[in-house]
Design a protein around this nucleic acid. Structure first.
Length: 558
DNA sequence: GTAGGAATAT
DNA sequence: CATATTCCTA
């Protein structure tokens, strides 16, 4: 294969990655090509333009040039050629761009290994982020070993990138927030298990294909009602147990800032619950929207009252959504059986939190989990493998890197499981599985196609890993899966299920998580919203693609 | 002595 | 209730 993917060594020696990234651009329209080139060059990428796949392919095969990533325009006229390109240059991470959203083309490209499909005009952010695919590919090729080593320089380079003061005030703020979390969670400490970047295209708060994503959560956005219950000001006691916008869709930037302070109680903040657009559910919830607003005011009033005394003593830990999120993440990463207080604590990296706190929370967590799983088990899903409405990526999430580019920042809530406090009114629709105990959602679903791509994982160009699965954070897509369902899917390989082996299923999941942890190649979300699996399959078969091109062998998951 | 985890207290 | 604290065990 005329593969031009860079090697680990190359990455190692790469000074200011991703500067100098060599981009192969196939664009039939000269104007667009130039425009694109300019943009890319502004980002310090090195661009070579080809107006058709043949030129590009010959350049590749001549080895006259090498490339790290390809950006390929596809349209109705050139698609067959482009397909050929994809097939031939299948080692080159290829990003499709297109004017029309022809779903079948899109899918075919993805099926042929395209790593991303973007609509034109492509935003700068997305262009900026193409390097992620290179890293990802690299990580992928590295087979999980030494990946973190290999990516170290990249990481460093990213750190500096993140620390740059960004022009845009708003995004700048977010960026720094992200950076901070980054540092906390992944960079400063030994967390380099997850070096693979995650492309947040799916999650961009702005427009785009994924509007449905946060919808569900958004509906739950409520103020915290705690204030009204107890006369005492909770905010004082609990300092900064703030909640970051779980549902970023709503999240106002303002609330975000405050919220971020969460862990740093040292800042003595009296927390501002006012705007927190968490998924909290007020008691007055079912009524109407206006009550919501009222609630907000109320809570803010209360807060103000007590804002004066800033008592530092924190007698109780407030397990805010964020805290819990971290907690769950930690647990997920460790695997349920490895999840012990000390390690969780370590992973969480929350200042001031004690092992005892974690232990206590863990206790509760386990109880709920125990309680909930069996119940879920009973209401096992009636539609096996097929039903398009729910085909979930059956793996537990292990978050890699949040987005790097400022404009790619995704508010935390999109990535992590939303916190739906117990008692949340789910309106009869079970949002994320457990109507019984919505608070303990275990994030687990993700990409719809995964179940089908187990064998041809890589070929799908979709977020999968060679042998294992990467766990993925909950991407709150349109429908949410229910936990058990997911387990079964995975356990049975999305075939038919014998709805009995809950335990086995659980073990599998745990194991998957463990494996995922030990194998750093995390999937990259694609820049397009995955159609339902059924849809994809139909489309593919309609196109005569019964099996996916070889590419990389992705062994089945047991 | 330490930590995890269940039981119990607040 | 949700957390903290205590108690028991390894």
């Amino acid at each position: 294969m005329p593969a031009m993917v860079c090697t680990a060594d190359e990455l190692l020696g790469w000074k200011d990655f991703p500067k100098g990234l060599k981009v192969l651009l196939i664009e039939s329209d000269a104007c667009s090509a130039v425009e694109m080139r300019l943009k890319l060059e502004e980002m310090d990428y090195i661009v070579s333009i080809f107006c058709n796949e043949n030129e590009a392919l010959s350049a590749i095969s001549n080895k006259s040039e090498c490339f790290h990533v390809a950006i390929v325009e596809v349209n109705t006229q050139n698609s067959s050629g482009i397909f050929k390109f994809l097939e031939t240059a299948n080692d080159l991470p290829t990003i499709m761009i297109s004017d029309n959203n022809c779903i079948s083309t899109m899918m075919k490209c993805i099926a042929l290994g395209a790593v991303e499909f973007l609509q034109k005009p492509v935003s700068d952010d997305k262009l900026q982020n193409i390097w992620q695919h290179v890293v990802h590919k690299q990580a992928f090729n590295a087979g999980g070993k030494d990946v973190s080593e290999a990516l170290k320089p990249v990481k460093e380079s990213l750190i500096s990138m993140l620390q740059l003061p960004f022009g845009n005030a708003e995004t700048g703020k977010q960026a720094s927030v992200e950076a901070e979390q980054e540092n906390n969670q992944d960079l400063l400490s030994g967390c380099d298990k997850y070096p693979a970047p995650s492309t947040p295209q799916l999650k961009q708060g702005e427009r785009s294909l994924d509007d449905g994503d946060c919808q569900d959560q958004a509906n739950f956005s409520m103020e915290q009602d705690s204030a009204e219950q107890d006369g005492e000001c909770k905010s004082v006691e609990t300092t900064c147990g703030n909640s970051i916008f779980e549902c970023t869709a709503l999240g106002s930037p303002a609330s975000g800032e405050d919220a971020v302070k969460e862990e740093h109680e040292s800042t003595n903040c009296c927390r501002t619950e006012i705007n927190t657009t968490t998924c909290y559910e007020g008691k007055d919830r079912p009524s109407n929207k206006t009550s919501n607003a009222a609630g907000l005011n109320r809570s803010s009033a209360v807060r103000n009252t007590c804002g004066i005394k800033a008592s530092k003593k924190r007698s109780k830990v407030d397990w805010t959504p964020e805290l819990h999120k971290k907690f769950v993440q930690a647990v997920e990463q460790l695997g349920i059986d490895q999840a012990i207080p000390s390690r969780i604590l370590e992973l969480m990296k929350v200042e001031g939190l004690t092992r005892h706190n974690v232990a206590s929370h863990l206790q509760k967590y386990r109880m709920h989990r125990r309680h909930i799983l069996p119940k879920e088990n009973e209401r096992r899903w009636p539609h096996p493998g097929g039903s398009a409405q729910r085909n979930y990526y059956p793996h537990k999430p292990v978050m890699a890197f949040p987005p790097y580019h400022p404009n790619h920042t995704i508010p935390g809530g999109q990535v992590y499981p939303a916190w739906i406090p117990p008692g949340t009114y789910t309106g009869g629709i079970h949002i994320w599985g457990s109507p019984y105990y919505p608070g303990w959602q275990v994030p687990n679903e993700s990409w719809y196609w995964k179940p089908y791509s187990m064998t041809h994982a890589d070929a799908w160009g979709c977020p999968v890993m060679p042998q294992t699965v990467g766990s993925y954070p909950q991407f709150a897509q349109q429908t949410a899966p229910d936990f058990q369902t997911t387990i079964e899917m995975q356990y049975t390989g999305s075939t038919l299920l014998n709805p009995s082996d809950l335990h086995a299923a659980e073990e599998v999941i745990d194991q998957v998580v463990k494996e995922a942890i030990s194998k750093p190649w995390l999937p990259l979300p694609l820049g397009l919203k995955p159609p339902s699996t059924e849809c994809v399959l139909n489309e593919l078969s309609r196109q005569g693609i019964s099996k996916i091109p070889p590419h990389t062998k992705a062994p089945n998951i047991r």
